[in-house]
Nucleic acid binder design. Structure first.
Length: 416
RNA sequence: GGAGGGGUGGCAGAGUGGUUGAAUGCACUGGUCUUGAAAACCAGCGUGCCGAAAGGUACCGGGGGUUCGAAUCCCUCCCCCUCCGCCA
């Protein structure tokens, strides 16, 4: 969430950013926030004054009691009665005000960085660069689900029988390719990132910390005992230091993890969800950094280059998009998407999303660092990126490297 | 799952109803001393919120309660430890 202080000082800035994101219906919420914030602070100040009176009364009662002046103490106790009831009423007002305020604040998205292009639709995303040649075929290239099925690499039907649509079995060389890619992605990350095997279920506090709750509740599965299967390793990785104050010298924190990811994908349908395009369970290698606020945008570029490097060594044609304000995630200030060419489907598939959240997530996470040269603890900046999501990489590898006779030849890095 | 014990500042560890946001030690920061360092000594050293500031207020796992007053008593939830059981 954004800080109330920032909204208080620059309401017009936030309103502009809402319009830029195509959320003009939320502009009036800023005024509500300002009103609610004022109400809260007034009640709080009054309550604190009364509390101060009460405290000093209590201290004098203590003195009277010790001196054995019971009657005087009794009078003072009587005097406290209405003070206490005022405090109680004010506390109620403060609570209701705080609840209203935090509900409003949760509805306000992060502020797009100045370098983020205007626009509300896919068409307004900027293609920053394209790498590699889109392969030309003398025959009609097949979609990956046909290639994979033909070679017995992936069994969608039995996956549907055993679990449901979107839960494929990878079999034989399919499973092996999958494993090799995970190994490649992790090995490429570990010179810079600490490898993590995270919990695959998290509690509600963690889901809230990274912003899955309350806004994206419908995206996650939930299991008994209040746990959520992670929709991405971002959740456990970014929550790792939740509610902690790091030393400035601990920054940047760099973590990477391979994990399965579970997503309900409610409302998805049609050809775009065929095969490996959109699954309820898929694997991904995620990279996360916690940085000093001054460095987060440089780090964002590093992380983008890291993900692009993987696509290069996989020899996959890809393009890098800078997402426009309206297409960016709610928590992000700047987001890159990497898309690979899918020869069989003749379209681009998103395989990575790399984002800077600045302090927006960190505020919810209560994740700070102590400045080396004194001063109060400051919020870190959090960033994450996929490096990379597995299924669509498998899809693109098969489709782009297929031959007319139905076979395929993958780059040597894909061999175990 | 059963029985018991426990959660206090970066760490260790006092504190069982009254100026306790919290002793003491360690760690850390600054200073004195020293050619320099160590040692010794002195001082400082949690977080949030309100406030221009002075200052105030809240926080001793979370929430609620009793009381004029709660780290301290009660209820509840969470977590950790020990023993037993079960088990990859």
């Amino acid at each position: 969430m954004l800080s109330v202080g920032l909204i208080r000082e620059h309401p017009e800035l936030i309103q502009e950013s809402l319009i830029k994101r195509g959320a003009s219906e939320k502009v009036q919420m800023i005024d509500e926030i300002l009103r609610e914030d004022k109400r809260r602070r007034e009640a709080l100040t009054l309550q604190q004054t009364k509390q101060q009176d009460l405290n000093s009364e209590s201290r004098s009662i203590s003195t009277l009691m010790r001196a054995g002046k019971k009657e005087e103490a009794q009078t003072a106790i009587e005097r406290q009665k209405h003070l206490k009831s005022d405090i109680k009423d004010l506390a109620q007002e403060i609570t209701s005000s705080e609840n209203a305020l935090s509900e409003l604040l949760l509805a306000i998205p992060n502020i797009p960085h100045e370098s983020v292009p205007d626009g509300l639709t896919e068409a307004n995303n900027v293609i920053l660069h394209t790498h590699g040649e889109i392969p030309a075929f003398e025959f009609t290239p097949l979609p990956h689900w046909e290639i994979a099925t033909r070679h017995g690499m992936i069994d969608f039907e039995r996956g549907a029988k055993v679990a449901g649509a979107g839960f494929p079995f990878y079999m034989g060389i399919g499973a092996q390719l999958h494993r090799t890619l995970i190994q490649l992605f992790i090995d490429t990350a570990t010179p810079d990132y600490t490898e993590v095997r995270p919990p695959l279920f998290v509690n509600p506090a963690s889901a809230q910390g990274t912003g899955q709750l309350p806004d994206k509740e419908g995206q996650m599965y939930s299991v008994g005992d209040g746990f959520y299967p992670i929709p991405t390793a971002e959740v456990p990785l970014t929550n790792y230091y939740r509610d902690e104050i790091l030393a400035e010298s601990d920054l940047p924190v760099r973590l990477c993890a391979h994990s399965p990811c579970w997503r309900r994908e409610a409302g998805s349908y049609g050809a775009h969800v065929r095969g490996l395009n959109r699954l309820h369970q898929f694997d991904k290698v995620e990279i996360v950094q916690l940085t000093h606020p001054e460095h987060s945008y440089d780090v964002l570029e590093d992380m983008r280059r890291h993900a692009e490097h993987l696509l290069k060594i996989l020899e996959l044609p890809y393009r890098c998009l800078l997402m426009c304000a309206g297409e960016m995630g709610f928590n992000q200030t700047k987001q890159y998407d990497l898309e690979v060419w899918s020869a069989g489907q003749r379209r681009w598939l998103e395989v990575s999303s790399i984002s800077n959240f600045t302090d927006y997530q960190a505020r919810r996470l209560n994740l700070k660092f102590r400045p080396e040269h004194g001063g109060r603890p400051q919020l870190v900046h959090t960033l994450n990126g996929s490096a990379l999501a597995l299924p669509r990489i498998v899809a693109a590898l098969l489709e782009n490297n297929q031959k007319e006779d139905g076979s395929f030849e993958l780059p040597s890095v894909c061999s175990p």
